[in-house]
């Protein structure tokens, strides 16, 4: 609290020079105590109960899908639906995979948000706050997982994305989708424990899983973790994201900002003075005009 007040005060005094002082990054170790969800795709039956649970818990319209075609089209989460379950024909047969915001440990969306409308909460979820957001959509440019969605057809548009049922977590409940999954394909818990569980499952059932926990390191690590029977590329998961966090990409630039702000003016004034010296010794014809 004290630190925050201090930051606010100094920020008010010199907003721009402080823009460079990126807050200390959360490392994967710090995040062990965060809440997380493990999605075990070998368990998912594709019943889409979670889609309905999500819609109901968050006051969203009922998932709009056509019973006949839903398995053929690839759906994306949208501003009306925070999560979707898709079916994939893979090398290991049919696999169902759900997608939603990954709740990164160091979220690009929150780092990019100039109003702090998107924040990583202490509990783990990355949430959006209507009273802060100005609708610039920079979060959408930044997010490597295409998490945030925008209501393009509303005069009072909101950013829509999975909130990981933050309110429920604070009330001691599990996320609605986890609650309603009949197959226990979704497991809720502390991130460190879930990573442990995921490893046990991989080691204990050789051949059932690819030896990769998606989200353990992707884009610096995420609060949503996935186990899969097939390589994640077959499920349309982005596999080119690297393991450094996305805010890291702008950290060098932001660190340079206060330096430039202090050094540059001094340099410019010195340069200007140096040029006065020239004028005085050599005399400037232009000045005479």
């Amino acid at each position: 609290m004290e630190r925050r007040t201090f930051l606010k005060l100094t920020a008010a005094a010199g907003a721009t020079s402080l823009a460079g002082c990126a807050s200390a990054p959360r490392s994967a170790e710090d995040a062990g105590e965060d809440y997380a969800v493990l999605v075990d795709l070998t368990q998912c039956a594709g019943c889409r109960m979670c889609e309905f649970a999500c819609a109901e818990a968050n006051g969203l319209p009922e998932p709009d899908y056509d019973e006949k075609t839903v398995d053929q089209v690839r759906r994306e989460p949208s501003e009306r639906q925070w999560q979707v379950v898709n079916r994939f024909e893979t090398s290991a047969g049919e696999v169902y995979a759900r997608r939603q915001c990954m709740h990164c440990l160091e979220p690009a969306c929150a780092a990019g948000c100039l109003t702090k409308a998107l924040v990583k909460t202490d509990e783990g979820p990355v949430v959006w706050r209507a009273d802060k957001c100005m609708g610039c959509r920079y979060c959408m440019i930044s997010c490597p997982f295409d998490g945030p969605k925008f209501e393009y057809h509303s005069p009072v548009p909101r950013i829509q994305k999975c909130q990981m049922c933050w309110e429920r977590l604070r009330a001691g409940e599990r996320p609605a989708c986890v609650e309603d999954c009949p197959m226990e394909a979704l497991v809720f818990g502390k991130r460190s424990e879930l990573l442990e569980l995921a490893r046990q499952r991989i080691y204990g059932n050789p051949g059932d899983y690819v030896p990769h926990i998606y989200g353990e390191h992707e884009a610096g690590g995420t609060s949503w973790l996935y186990l899969s029977p097939v390589p994640f590329a077959e499920l349309g998961f982005p596999t080119n994201l690297g393991t450094t966090s996305y805010p890291e990409l702008t950290r060098d630039f932001l660190t340079a900002v206060p330096v430039v702000l202090t050094v540059w003016p001094a340099f410019l004034l010195a340069l200007r003075r140096a040029n006065v010296g020239d004028d005085e010794t050599a005399g400037s014809p232009a000045r005479e005009e």
């Binding site: 930051l7 606010k8 920020a11 008010a12 907003a15 402080l18 823009a19 002082c21 990126a22 807050s23 929150a110 780092a111 990019g112 948000c113 100039l114 109003t115 702090k116 409308a117 009273d131 802060k132 957001c133 100005m134 609708g135 610039c136 959509r137 920079y138 925008f150 209501e151 009072v156 548009p157 805010p247 702008t250 630039f253 932001l254």
Partner: peptide, 20 residues
């Protein structure tokens, strides 16, 4: 999208200091 909140990063009630 929400221009009425454009003052937020200016009047200082929410400084996104990590934001380019």
């Amino acid at each position: 999208g929400r221009p009425w909140n454009v003052v937020n990063p200016i009047i200082g009630n929410s400084f996104g200091l990590t934001s380019v």
